[in-house]
């Protein structure tokens, strides 16, 4: 069995209000070096099959359900 670690974030250029609000708060608290904060989702999934098939399936799952390609992008690693 393999484990898929999936990271979903808003696409570059899409407004990300959560990150923006946290960023502003951090700067206000004195962390002046913070330049950008982006918040996303992290998903772990256990999955059976050979490596190639897993990659294909996870990719498909991300595209179909986990992320909305209109606004989100995803990345994953299989370990």
């Amino acid at each position: 069995m393999a484990k898929a670690k999936i990271y979903i974030t808003f696409k570059d250029g899409v407004l990300e209000p959560q990150g923006k609000t946290v960023n502003a708060a951090l700067v206000k608290m004195g962390y002046k070096n913070i330049k950008d904060v982006r918040i996303g989702k992290y998903i772990e999934m256990e999955i059976d099959g050979n490596n190639e098939k897993i990659k294909k399936e996870v990719d498909e799952i991300c595209d179909k359900l986990l992320a909305n390609p209109n606004i989100e992008k995803y990345d994953f690693e299989i370990i």
Binding site: P17, Q18, T21, V22, A25, K28, M29, I39
Partner: peptide, 14 residues
């Protein structure tokens, strides 16, 4: 407060 964007109340407490 602050949209509850991180966790509810997490930013307001500061």
């Amino acid at each position: 407060s602050y949209g509850d964007y991180l966790r509810s109340g997490a930013i307001a407490r500061f």
